[in-house]
Design a protein around this nucleic acid. Structure first.
Lengths: 139, 139
DNA sequence: TATAATTTGCAACTTAGTTGCAATTTAAAA
DNA sequence: TTTTAAATTGCAACTAAGTTGCAAATTATA
């Protein structure tokens, strides 16, 4: 129930209609430990199923308010996560295992913001994507 | 003609059959200034058209030999570039404009390799993706 | 409770990328 | 140069992610 309240507050603060789909989807993202695709969100919704169009539209709506963002794309599918644990422009690195496909959020490692951008470039977001072998697959 | 020779050499050194599609596709990538999708490669092939399956398979074959790699995915589509101008594990940053969609290779800026990876992680490739406004769109 | 504005679900669609298979092309030996 | 086995190509049909228009349902507010 705590997450329910949190979801409601997030929606209210962003001045968005507080609907069941949005609430349910937000709750899934709140407890997620890694970015999720629409398909994965659907699985985690359990009996609170919602149409995939609704999920995509909700994610887009939330992203427009900077509450959620596209963390990366893997195998044609976009993966989304709550934005609250990242700085506005700099996100934690994501490590994807080239063997098992799993992605791990490296929330404890931070990379410096890029330096030396030429005049005229305005940086909105920096993403670091790492590929390699995860501990399970490297041994 | 210089590029033709270069493409041939690349294929030969990798012990790959030297076919017209592979040659043509490599030449497109050699002169490209930015990563390309299959569709963009097709456009740049001009009258040397090849089937899209062939292009995807060629890219996969070249990637398996580390001659080419997937630089990033934007709008559902993977973008590929020649690997020769990147270190083995670390690639130059790519800046994508959130306004016009254009991507610029920042070959003159290099980010340090990530530090502090926990034991068991084996890094194969580090990609830095930047989003923001390009000089044309920020003024 | 009534109303206007927003959101939802559905079906149909677009587009990236893949697969099986027969026909063609390549490299290398005869 | 010709032959041959192995690799590659093109085609058609497919899978799957994500989008769109629109009518029906839901939300916030008066």
């Amino acid at each position: 129930m705590k997450h329910d309240l949190k979801a409601k507050n997030i929606l209210k603060s962003a001045m968005l209609y507080c609907t069941k789909p949005r609430n349910d989807i937000l709750k899934v993202l709140i407890v997620a430990k890694t970015p999720l695709t629409q398909k994965q969100i659907t699985e985690k919704l359990g009996k609170n199923q919602h149409n995939k169009t609704t999920i995509y539209r909700t994610l887009r709506t939330l992203a427009k308010k900077d509450l959620v963002h596209k963390a990366y794309i893997h195998k044609k599918a976009s993966h989304f996560e709550l934005a609250e644990n990242c700085g506005k422009t700099r996100c934690h690195p994501h490590f994807t295992c080239s063997n098992c496909g799993k992605t791990i959020c490296l929330t404890d490692i931070s990379m410096p913001l890029i330096k030396g951008l030429k005049k005229g470039f305005v940086l909105q977001r920096q993403k670091l994507q790492l590929l390699g072998l995860c501990p399970d697959c490297s041994s």
